[in-house]
């Protein structure tokens, strides 16, 4: 009986994670538009004369001819780079930000589950990270995180109170990561102190965060602006961006069920 024929497929994807395997191989995790996350081995990729090695480094947009494995681990037989994002590799701040994008995109993706929008968001965000002026990078991060949550169906509720379902009036309010939206601040509450824990804290004890008026306005504007090009030119106070990042960061951490991300930790040391 002849051995079963190997099945091949072509895939386009971005390398979101890679790790060494054995003597000279590398396992890469690709975020693809039509198959979600796929894992594949690039044989001999760490050898200096490897034909695949240079193409399967992290944060590369590639097309690959892949031999289907018996398990979920496939084998890359041919690979070409679509975009190496070279400017990211020459700037530590851009590189760590791009790694953060890749990390959270992977966390919200599934194996063998197509998600064209998530792939396109990562591809576009990496392109924007190449050339966005450095002072605007925190806004790009906030846009990416907010758009990612919206893409995966977790858009924060910024217009109605998640507890009372009443409209949020203009002013400072609270944001609950576990409930996914704003909590209307009672008139008597002082925004400079924590609210009454019994009345305000969620049963899961996730701390709620102060969301000042301008932060709320900015987040609302971002959720209405899926196009980064229209947001890039916006003049925004750095404090409002930082406020928005605190809110979105807390929501991301809650949804991922873990603390500070790997790239975030490195970003903290790089920027300090």
């Amino acid at each position: 009986m002849s051995p079963p024929r190997r099945r091949y497929f072509n895939a386009e994807g971005i390398v979101v994670r890679a790790r060494d395997l054995g003597e000279a191989d590398r396992i890469v995790i690709l975020l693809t538009p039509d198959r979600g996350l796929i894992s594949a081995v690039a044989r001999g990729a760490r050898r200096t004369r490897s034909r695949t090695g240079g193409h399967v480094d992290l944060l590369r947009h590639i097309t690959a001819h892949i031999s289907e494995g018996r398990s979920d681990l496939h084998v890359i037989s041919q690979v070409e780079t679509v975009n190496a994002y070279l400017p990211l590799r020459n700037d530590l701040d851009r590189l760590t930000l791009a790694s953060h994008f890749a990390e959270i995109s992977e966390r919200f993706s599934l194996q063998n589950a197509a998600n064209l929008h998530l792939f396109a968001l990562l591809r576009d965000s990496l392109t924007y990270a190449e050339s966005t002026p450095k002072p605007i990078l925190p806004l790009l991060r906030l846009w990416h995180e907010t758009t990612l949550l919206t893409t995966v169906g977790l858009q924060p509720q910024l217009h109605r109170c998640v507890r009372t379902n009443t409209e949020i009036p203009p002013g400072d309010h609270w944001f609950s990561p576990s409930e996914g939206g704003l909590i209307k601040r009672p008139d008597q509450a002082d925004t400079n102190t924590s609210p009454d824990p019994i009345a305000f804290n969620h049963p899961e004890n996730t701390p709620i965060i102060l969301a000042p008026l301008n932060t709320i306005k900015l987040l609302r504007h971002i959720t209405r602006t899926p196009n980064w090009g229209r947001l890039e030119g916006l003049r925004v106070d750095a404090r409002d961006v930082a406020g928005g990042s605190r809110v979105m960061g807390a929501m991301l951490r809650y949804q991922q069920e873990r603390g500070v991300g790997r790239a975030e930790r490195v970003m903290g040391e790089v920027s300090s």
């Binding site: 979101v16 994670r17 890679a18 992290l58 590189l95 760590t96 790694s99 953060h100 890749a102 990390e103 991300g261 790997r262 790239a263 930790r265 490195v266 970003m267 903290g268 040391e269 790089v270």
Partner: peptide, 11 residues
């Protein structure tokens, strides 16, 4: 090596 994707920082 510093690895943003593996969470290995300079420290």
């Amino acid at each position: 090596a510093i690895s943003p994707t593996s969470g290995i920082a300079a420290s």
